[in-house]
């Protein structure tokens, strides 16, 4: 029973952190109809900013979270405005060229970080790292719990923002029909830049809450990009509830898979889910192409 409970808790907590990373991707994919392959690299940039803030300004990652998110919002906004957005003409849109561009950006960003910080593992031990809570034979790593709480708060705030504010509704409208949004007087270009910035900031938040739990190196983002992608397909584009439930499903599947099926299978399960969704629930994918 303790094993089951431990597995469940691990899955839920990890899933919450996956969700916040994925939610940024799902938003961008909703509005831009492209897979943003730079998403993971931008998350990693957020982690390095957090590292610098911790080492040089002594800010705990949970405090550094806000400045890091602001920085990444600006980086994302500008990147979209001056680079990715330029490739998208209204008439001559070739989605592939934008995807390729995001891939190139992701790799370039990684290289720049590698040059600045080297490939070495960066490890920080802020307060609460390695602190545990023991409960009925189960163990909860406190930074996981805090990370999960932060992630859920952001997901809830984002949900509220999208559903209840004009700006949020403009993001949704733009993702559903960009031209129609323009007819409504929405500046779709600025909404796209804004969404990209927002998605990037959320990815950075996901990265930052991993900092007390994990280690950092320039390629740290690879598995998270794949997970975000799986969750996006699983949860549906632009849907906060979808991303949260997708994150939880993936987290739980990985956790139960590795406990009851063998730890080498944990990660494989995500891709099995991904394939099953593509095969039997292709709605998600259809919407990406069906624009």
């Amino acid at each position: 029973m303790a094993l089951f409970g431990q597995t469940f808790i691990t899955g839920v907590l990890m899933g919450g952190i996956y969700a916040i990373i994925a939610i940024g991707m799902t938003l961008v994919m909703g509005v831009m109809k492209i897979i943003n392959l730079a998403h993971g690299a931008l998350m990693m940039v957020g982690m390095y900013i957090c590292l610098v803030l911790f080492e040089h300004a002594g800010l705990h990652p949970y405090v550094a979270l806000i400045p890091t998110m602001i920085a990444l919002f600006i980086i994302g906004y500008l990147l979209q405005k001056y680079s990715i957005g330029r490739v998208s003409g209204v008439e001559t849109i070739i989605p592939e060229s934008q995807v390729l561009l995001t891939l190139a950006l992701g790799l370039a960003i990684t290289e720049v970080i590698r040059v600045i910080f080297t490939s070495n593992y960066q490890i920080i031990h802020p307060a609460l790292t390695g602190e545990y809570w023991h409960l009925a034979g189960m163990t909860i790593e406190i930074p996981y719990l805090i990370g999960f709480v932060i992630a859920t708060i952001f997901v809830a705030l984002l949900h509220f923002f999208l559903a209840r504010t004009d700006l949020g509704q403009s993001v949704i409208a733009t993702s559903q029909d960009k031209d129609a949004a323009v007819y409504m007087g929405i500046n779709a270009e600025r909404i796209t830049n804004f969404t990209f910035g927002l998605g990037t900031a959320l990815a950075a938040a996901g990265g930052v809450i991993l900092m007390p739990l994990f280690y950092l190196y320039p390629h740290v983002w690879h598995p998270y990009l794949m997970k975000a992608f799986v969750i996006t397909i699983l949860g549906g584009m632009g849907s906060t509830v979808g991303a949260l439930s997708g994150g939880l499903i993936l987290g739980l599947a990985e956790s139960f898979g590795s406990t009851y099926w063998g730890p080498q299978w944990g990660e494989v399960i995500g891709f099995i889910i991904f394939l099953l969704i593509l095969l039997f629930l292709p709605g998600g994918l259809k919407r990406i192409i069906g624009r």
Binding site: A2, Q6, T10, G262, P263, Q264
Partner: peptide
């Protein structure tokens, strides 16, 4: 006796089984 993926973030599911 089990193999694992060295790139995982969270080994607690495996370690819980080890503990058991």
């Amino acid at each position: 006796d089990s193999k694992y993926n060295s790139e995982a973030t969270d080994f607690k599911p495996m370690l819980s089984k080890v503990k058991a």
